[in-house]
């Protein structure tokens, strides 16, 4: 996966030099290990700052919203699906974009790695094919990448970009995932009071920093409902009811649009598995409408349209 870096730099340089794009959006190596940062490169000479490994977890689509210039952008499977959603939702035009697709083998869950080294400070990470090595002051450990993938990457069935102008590397066969929604099924099986306890417990650490919202490319409204005051939909406090309202409404706003890119969960500073909310809706939308977000430029998400054969069994 690391080998992509050179090709990305080459491609970006070429696109910037021949003025195909005004800016190229990719990642650069983070100042902290396992935290690559998004970067916008507009000078061909600075294309070498671009970098790629299995810690590119932030969703680059975030940086496209309402831009008016011509943009080159890196896109993994999920990122490309968000780009498609962005195009459908008029946040960017397809002809402004030069999409450089990247078949993705999944991103590494930095928290899982930290846990694996017993939360000791990691100073350096090097990736080598299917494994990676972390170094600290008094340790040096190698792990199998597959074991440390982000949860969303483990169940990902769209690793190849769905919309692109060129691809770096060769697309590979998508993985077969059985019981992709085992976690959702488990919660569904709980009694309602257990469910309530589960979710109350889950969000109890939430500090309402809105990092999950900010990391999400779907959240681009000029004014978020949490900031509206007339009427006020959600209290500003960290009262559990308000916090729950925030999480549920945020998830509803993502229904039928979420690509399960995992950016929200990765961004959460207190480690709340916020995808539990969105995944339930992803599953429902798939079960009811056979829909996965961002696979087609021609079709709006199912909740945006009315079809006579829409699911209506809930009407009694």
């Amino acid at each position: 996966m690391v080998t992509y870096t050179d090709e990305i730099r080459k491609t970006a340089k070429k696109l910037l030099e021949d003025k195909t794009v005004d800016v190229f959006i990719g990642y650069k190596k983070g100042t902290v290990p396992m935290m690559n940062e998004p970067v916008l490169v507009s000078d061909a000479d600075k294309a070498d700052t671009l970098y790629w490994d299995s810690f590119c977890g932030l969703n680059l689509c975030n940086y496209l919203t309402k831009r008016t210039d011509r943009i080159g952008i890196l896109a993994t499977g999920c990122n490309s699906r968000n780009i498609v959603t962005h195009i459908i939702e008029n946040q960017i035009k397809r002809d402004q974009l030069y999409i450089v697709g990247i078949p993705c083998t999944g991103m590494i869950d930095h928290r899982a790695v930290l846990r694996a080294v017993k939360e000791r400070e990691i100073l350096e990470v090097t990736e080598n094919g299917d494994s990676f090595t972390v170094k600290g002051n008094d340790f040096n450990e190698t792990f199998d990448k597959k074991e440390y993938l982000q949860a969303n990457c483990k169940t990902c069935t769209h690793r190849n970009p769905v919309e692109y102008d060129e691809v770096i590397g060769t697309p590979f066969e998508e993985q077969e995932v059985s019981e992709a929604y085992r976690d959702v099924e488990k919660i569904k099986g709980m009694a309602s009071d257990k469910k309530w306890d589960f979710f109350t417990q889950m969000i109890s650490n939430c500090i309402r920093c809105y990092a999950c919202r900010n990391a999400c490319p779907l959240c681009y409204c000029p004014t978020c409902f949490v900031d509206e005051s007339g009427p006020q939909w959600v209290g500003k406090s960290i009262d559990p009811t308000d916090t729950m309202t925030f999480h549920i409404l945020r998830a509803y706003h993502c229904a039928g649009r979420c690509t399960d890119c995992g950016a929200c969960e990765r961004a959460c500073p207190v480690g709340i598995p916020v995808r539990q909310f969105t995944r339930k809706l992803n599953k429902d939308v798939f079960d009811l409408f056979k829909w996965e977000a961002g696979l087609s430029l021609d079709e709006r998400p199912p909740l945006d349209v009315y079809r006579p054969d829409d699911y209506n069994d809930f009407i009694r």
Binding site: K66, E89, N90, Q91, Y220, P222, T223, R300, D304, V305
Partner: peptide, 10 residues
């Protein structure tokens, strides 16, 4: 407040 997403139009 409009984000141009087009849900209303659709």
């Amino acid at each position: 407040f409009c984000s141009s997403c087009g849900v209303c139009v659709s």
